[in-house]
Amino acid sequence: MRHVLNITDLSVSEIDSLIATAMDIIGNREKYQDICRRKKLATLFFEPSTRTRLSFEAAMLELGGSVIGFSSASSSSSSKGESVSDTVKVVSYYADIIAMRHPKEGAPVAASAVSGVPIINAGDGGHNHPTQTLADLLTIHREKGRFNDLTVGFCGDLKFGRTVHSLVSALSRYCGINLVFISPDELKIPQYIITDIVNKNHMPYIETRDMESVMPTLDILYMTRVQGERFFNEADYVRLKDYYILTPDKLAAAKPDMCVMHPLPRVNEISRTIDSDPRACYFKQVENGKYMRMALIMMLLGLTPEI
């Protein structure tokens, strides 16, 4: 049984293929509108989510399939003490494919061990979020036209920012990627990402607290939200939540074709006045995410459109 729990569960050629499918979906929507007819996607969201859950559901509906599931742990049997493994085992008898989000890291790994249908990790705590990375990669492909020779800055909560960890993993398989990690000391990129991914793949990187000093060097600036739900201490969250705020003043020093990305939701870290700047790509990521999830669902169900 094929599952996608981590972005590295997909080979570079499979990601290329998913991007090609997504680009074809964008140009030929009607070709895909019935491809998942009579197939059911279960969205098991043990943690609140707006865009990821709706993106999966919209993706399946646009493929002609159906959706079942729940949107919070309180509306599932986990509120009665049922284990993730049991919930997933039961749902795998009802659905053809499962997208799950869980606040605990590694929950999709536990789920995949018992599931009879493909599991897609739709985010597990501060760990991984591979389909956001697919959205990010399609956005980079559409905006920059390449995955090589890019200087990519990650800014904000790099410790718990699962989208950052997944995107660094994905980019580690391309050449000429320079990484710039911008964060307060308390939210630095985890050491295992540096040793197991960055150093292992000989990726040049710098760590800094100063966003403005590195701004002119960046091809992509990937902003992240400081996530209150990941802190055990409220005081730490309050102290760090507005550490970085991207404003037009700061963006003035950036390259004219730099991409500002953000997995959303944002709070204060990107000023609303930047939304109209052509470099703002974060709403494009939302759209691209749906197309990549459509492509991924088709791939995991072994479905291809009739030509």
Partner: peptide, 11 residues
Amino acid sequence: PRCITSTEQEL
């Protein structure tokens, strides 16, 4: 403490 094994004892 954020790992799934911290809450699901049978794993």
